[in-house]
Design a protein around this nucleic acid. Sequence first.
DNA 1: CTGAAAGCGCTTACAG
DNA 2: CTGAAAGCGCTTACAG
Lengths: 335, 335
Amino acid sequence: MSGRPTIKEVSKIAGVSFKTVSRVLNNEKHVSEETRRRVEEVVARLNFRPSQAARMLAGRRSFQVALLYDNPSPYYVYHIQTGAQQRCTDLGYRLLLQPIDSQAPDLVPEIMALIDEAHLDGLILSPPITEVAALLDALDARGVPYVRIAPGIRAGAGMATSMDDIAAAREVTRHLIGLGHRDIAFIRGPESHVSSANRLQGYRLEMEAAGIPFDPDLVVAGDYSFTSGSQAARKLLDRKPAPTAIFAGNDDMAAGALALAHERDIAVPDRLSIAGFDDSDLAKAVWPPLTTLRQPVHELAWAAADLMLGENTAEPQLVLDHQLMIRASTGPAFR
Amino acid sequence: MSGRPTIKEVSKIAGVSFKTVSRVLNNEKHVSEETRRRVEEVVARLNFRPSQAARMLAGRRSFQVALLYDNPSPYYVYHIQTGAQQRCTDLGYRLLLQPIDSQAPDLVPEIMALIDEAHLDGLILSPPITEVAALLDALDARGVPYVRIAPGIRAGAGMATSMDDIAAAREVTRHLIGLGHRDIAFIRGPESHVSSANRLQGYRLEMEAAGIPFDPDLVVAGDYSFTSGSQAARKLLDRKPAPTAIFAGNDDMAAGALALAHERDIAVPDRLSIAGFDDSDLAKAVWPPLTTLRQPVHELAWAAADLMLGENTAEPQLVLDHQLMIRASTGPAFR
DNA sequence: CTGAAAGCGCTTACAG
DNA sequence: CTGAAAGCGCTTACAG
């Protein structure tokens, strides 16, 4: 690999010391406008970029942070990546995208080693890595800055971005109740996800607020997968009387429930309404398209990066808006 | 940030020079077994990881490569990332995941600057960045190693992994013909994608091989999006007689066609068969699940990383197997 | 506003 | 098999 220009070559051509070039590159004060312009011109002409390795080694900051994730959903990972990366790039930081097994026994030392190895300035944690208490303790102890996206434990502490899962699930439930449904079933996600418990609670609160007694038999467990949604729907639709509406804790499970309805020739939404949660790519690709709740995944990640690296220091806990997306999979109750 | 151990501290504790520690870390010869063991023990105890920045700066290699992508499909991006990252990690390399706008006017200088800035040892290119001739020229000129995934132009040159789109599309078409279909329509992808033209050609070749004359009116253009699939299906189903089968160039468009069939109450597969391409997450989430062609996305990326960094130097052009996935969206022709 | 010195934590030649 | 020296390309104090 040849042709790599260095700061010294730039300085030679610009006729200044390489220290002055460094000042220009780092936007420091105390450089005359004319000198700055001359240096910038040479930098642009040579297409010069300072060696990140050298900056990391010499400086106290690496301008490098990592996004840690352990999520099986391509949709979720994609949007969380693009959101965080967009903001990091704008602020002059490189974002390392780090998939990681949150169940690994040596998770904490591995992450600490990563911090050393890559000289990380900070960490963005996404669920379920947000819930590893030992990791939070270790980061706090070393003074490594971090932001959590949608944290469950220690929700009030540190920097975090989130949405209100309870309020959101209430909105979906209210929509169904508004359509005349009373026998509304809920397919819940895995115990390990905080979001899952919160959505269930939102469903329950709204049912009770409408004077409909909570019926535990109408709640069936899934694991956020398509297949588990189908199985849960099978159980629910075998009941007599069957519920007239199903609210699934995410879109994958809603799609699974929908497929089962098709299989049994149950018209949706005429005989059965189905609502999901997330507004993932899936929601618009199935038939009929899913009524669901748009989770601002991209924005949550963008705001997390902004919180850690940007100017905003006022509000360390950001709650972003969600949105109910009403589509064709829900309709008036038939009885 | 405190507590960062360095190679010197390790060497002090192990009672050797720091140069010896360096030898152990790099698996060099000429270290006695006993010394090696002692050093490794200290490294493990301190949870020491060498500073990547220092290695990059001092060494001729960075052990860092980048994956460049510009693709709107979360599914595709997710699997290409995990495939490449898995192999890179196993081989001791860090993989930078770099989304990039392949239409950007300064694409080439931007990438060259990235190479300098991050001291990259090589590049993995995914479509459509694989098709930027000026980039390939620049990389060749600087001697930067790169592998392309599913290249279109200069397909015979350099390192590449791919699948046989033509043969694959022939298989899907053959499956439909075997079910008794003769009026088989094709929804093609955008002109800009090589895969799109190849799949069309495979469809055409197989039709002609079966003695069915190619009918250009049965080919409608889409852009790989769900919506374009619906629109294309609308045009096709407005024809008299309508085709009995639709082969879409990817799963998103197939899902769009399927949604239109539902909208018009056309039973799938009884009155209309629909096949897709990719075997994305979508294929199993819609009803009925799509017959489609499994593209080995993960494996293509894994093999690309392996080609560039692994031991395999024999075969610079790898063609991986695909697989026809027969599901419920295709069935016997009704007439 | 500008510059010369020291050093970040490693690897690369070069000795022994 | 092991070590002392030089240097990678920058930033950080410190001077002027």
